[in-house]
């Protein structure tokens, strides 16, 4: 019977750079491992292909956690896309990836040929990645798994800005990110975070939008305590 316990790796939770040998498969007989982003198999070794921190999730999934400005599409990721072109059957959407994504005109709640949405070029859309292969363009959908619109669709008004993929993950992390928690206690605003490194903010007043946007942008290089103190000083100036 196969032993499926995670293989020992001295580099787990340590930083790696491209070319670093992470695991030696010759020493790991009858063990099943899964490779995530930033790793590849080369003969009997597993090597890092990008710089970052090596992570391991039970039972035995390895990946390199890093932060970039570009996004590599992955199924079930929620993304913020900008419509760059319209075709009869689908919209071409820029999601900051290697290729433009397709958003079928029927990938909306109750979507039929009669009620095709009219999106102009430049429209901001919150969508879900449903297909992601390197050999074909990613495919998006504005429905959840049950076919409901949920929070997906066109985002009107507000302000959209680009961040790194690392900051996006931090904003979507659980428990709630300190910056959003601190801002949410004092200000009312709407926020949509895409895992592709785009953030959309909307609030009743433009000053609130500016405060929230600037706070989020600056939070990338701050610890939790630093984020809270920054929000306090920003709100003091605002009042």
């Amino acid at each position: 019977m196969e032993s499926r316990k995670p293989p020992p790796s001295a580099l787990v939770d340590n930083h790696v750079v491209p070319g670093d040998v992470v695991l030696d498969l010759a020493e790991m007989t009858n063990q099943t491992i899964k490779l995530g982003a930033g790793l590849r198999q080369d003969c009997d070794t597993i090597q890092a292909t990008s710089a970052g921190r090596l992570r391991l999730s039970k039972p035995s999934k390895y990946w390199v956690e890093s932060s970039q400005k570009r996004y590599i599409p992955s199924v079930e990721d929620t993304v913020l896309g900008v419509v760059v072109d319209t075709k009869p059957d689908n919209f071409l959407v820029d999601i900051k990836g290697p290729n433009l994504a397709f958003l079928p005109v029927l990938a909306f709640e109750g979507g039929t040929r009669r009620n095709i949405p009219k999106f102009e070029i430049g429209t901001l859309i919150y969508a879900r990645v449903v297909k992601a292969n390197s050999i074909m363009n990613p495919e998006l959908s504005c429905m959840d798994a049950t076919g409901k619109a949920a929070e997906f669709g066109q985002l009107k008004d507000g302000y959209m800005f680009d961040t790194s993929t690392g900051l996006s993950r931090m904003l979507l992390s659980s428990p709630t990110c300190p910056i959003l928690e601190a801002l949410g206690k004092k200000l009312s605003f709407e926020i949509a975070v895409g895992l592709n490194g785009r953030v959309w903010v909307n609030a009743p007043s433009p000053s609130n939008v500016i405060v929230v946007s600037n706070a989020i942008i600056k939070s990338e290089s701050l610890s939790g305590i630093g984020q809270r103190s920054m929000v306090e000083s920003l709100l003091e100036r605002l009042s």
Binding site: V17, P18, G19, G38, R40, D42, Q47, T49, S50, A51, S66, S67, Q68, K69, R70
Partner: peptide, 11 residues
């Protein structure tokens, strides 16, 4: 290239 996160065989 490493800063951009582009996958590389080695440095």
């Amino acid at each position: 290239l490493a800063d951009a996160g582009i996958p590389m065989r080695d440095i």
